[in-house]
């Protein structure tokens, strides 16, 4: 994912150092299917990332990327985009600017630093093509299940309201 212009980075870094959460819009497709072009991401300072975390790092040329930590070796780590196979690194502590903790999508805040999305991301990274297809199907089934539950809840709520309306 590509983040806002390089000029804004001192502002972002200073905010993260102050302990503020920084929200920004990411662009690009290298983190699909977990992050999409136009997603609003919340970043927080992070002393050292875990494998599976999505981190904002600055490369030697100053290029900024938001990718997932693929592995750690001593005092360094390597990152990879979810839509990619090739790892980038090594990155040291100084290259680490922050960690993505939330993504805001369809009026929902989804945690990226723990829970199912984090675990799915970690599995995704280690999976081959077949595993990735299976994960995508699992995600579709999960989303379908969630939509059905929401629809049933809405229906029940409507039913309860109309019943309530009938009561004197």
């Amino acid at each position: 994912m590509i983040l806002p212009s390089r000029e804004l980075m001192p502002v972002i870094c200073a905010a993260l150092e102050r302990g503020q959460q920084v929200r920004l819009t990411a662009t690009g497709s290298s983190m699909q299917p977990f992050l999409f072009d136009g997603d609003v991401i919340a970043l927080e300072a992070c002393p050292w990332p875990k494998v599976g975390d999505i981190v904002l790092v600055r490369g030697a040329t100053g290029r900024l990327v938001l990718h997932r930590v693929a592995r750690r070796v001593d005092d360094a780590f390597y990152v990879v985009g979810d839509a990619q196979r090739e790892q980038e690194g090594p990155f040291g502590r100084r290259a680490l600017l922050g960690r993505a903790v939330l993504v805001f999508r369809e009026e929902r805040a989804i945690r990226l630093d723990r829970g199912v999305p984090w675990l799915a991301g970690r599995i995704w990274m280690r999976s081959g093509s077949r595993g990735r297809v299976a994960l995508l199907w699992a995600a579709r089934v999960r989303a379908l299940g969630r939509r059905l539950v929401r629809r049933i809840s809405l229906k029940n709520a409507k039913g309860a309201t109309s019943e309530g309306d009938r009561c004197p």
Binding site: V11, A14, Q20, V22, R23, L24, T25, V40
Partner: peptide, 11 residues
């Protein structure tokens, strides 16, 4: 730049 808020929204 808001420095007092918990969240800095670049948007």
């Amino acid at each position: 730049v808001p420095i007092g808020a918990q969240v800095m929204d670049l948007n």
